[in-house]
């Protein structure tokens, strides 16, 4: 990514963070912590990595994005609206009755949402199925699946971890949004994941550890995954829960609470003031 592209992407992501805060404030519930920790990765995927067309969400040659950590879907909605999948006004309907923007990703409501998720641990299996179908047909589709760190405590994740290398799914990229927090506390206390990278390596994934807020690092890891043949890639992305809003950063209680009026005002002031 050249410097000018990087500057544009940074500005887009700053606006996505603003969208996320506004959406969650209006909805009165939702998950800011994990939306803000994942937004840099999701935006980089949609803007600079994936082959996709907002006007043709079912384009057979598209790359597929799976939001396995379904509670972080406001981040995906913000990017999808930004790219023209649906009118940006619709972000205001998040979590409301009759909205296409369900509280967790739901197939059939909003074109471009590929997998129903929210019961944690399933997305990597779904992504492996998509990747395998493409392989069977000799097609070039790539699949990207973002998981929460706590999510990888689910056994099904490790079923998929075994299966994807068996089928040599080098068109599959998993990303762990390693923000170190989950509802009941730090992942290290609730159910420690370490040594997390070693686990994925041991399961025969090409494993890359990055700073999940460093856009160059994200982009570089995705290129490395593209150049990796014969096995899937897992990117362990160290992130900060609530990234970009000072009073949310690293605070676990912001996992699943919407900001009130005053908090929203402060968050927006910070994000709007961060304009470069």
């Amino acid at each position: 990514m050249v410097a000018s592209e990087m500057a544009v992407l940074k500005e887009q992501i700053r606006n996505y963070r603003i969208d996320i805060i506004k959406m969650l404030h209006r909805a009165g519930s939702g998950h800011p912590g994990g939306s803000l920790s994942a937004i840099d990765i999701i935006a980089t995927l949609y803007h600079h990595e994936m082959k996709h067309d907002p006007k043709r969400p079912e384009w057979p040659d598209r790359d597929v994005f799976v939001m396995s950590k379904g509670h972080g879907v406001p981040a995906q909605y913000a990017v999808m609206a930004g790219m023209g999948y649906f009118p940006k006004d619709e972000l205001a309907t998040l979590r409301q009755i009759n909205s296409r923007l369900q509280g967790h990703p739901s197939v059939g409501f909003l074109p471009g949402i590929e997998a129903s998720t929210g019961s944690l641990g399933m997305g990597l299996s779904f992504a492996a199925g998509v990747a395998l179908a493409a392989k069977m047909d000799g097609k070039a589709n790539r699949v990207y699946c973002i998981m929460g760190d706590g999510e990888t405590q689910e056994g099904q994740v490790w079923e998929a971890a075994l299966a994807a290398p068996k089928f040599k799914l080098d068109n599959l990229v998993g990303i762990v949004d390693y923000n170190k927090g989950q509802i009941d506390g730090p992942t290290s206390e609730v159910m420690d994941l370490e040594p997390i990278a070693d686990k994925w390596k041991a399961f025969n994934w090409h494993t890359i550890v990055i700073d999940g807020h460093d856009l160059d690092a994200i982009h570089g890891a995705l290129q490395e995954a593209r150049n990796t043949k014969g096995k899937p890639t897992m990117i362990v992305a160290h992130t900060v829960k609530g990234k970009g809003v000072s009073f949310m950063e690293g605070v676990i209680d912001w996992h699943g609470a919407a900001p009130n009026d005053a908090q929203t005002e402060q968050a927006l002031a910070e994000l709007e003031g961060a304009q470069s």
Binding site: M122, F126, A128, G129, L132, A133, D137, N141, Q156
Partner: peptide, 21 residues
């Protein structure tokens, strides 16, 4: 497609396969 003793993974993988036709 032989997935081994992984029924949960099989169910969700199947959904992914179905998404691709």
């Amino acid at each position: 497609i032989q997935v081994g003793i992984q029924e949960g993974n099989m169910v969700t993988m199947a959904a992914g396969l179905a998404t691709m036709g």
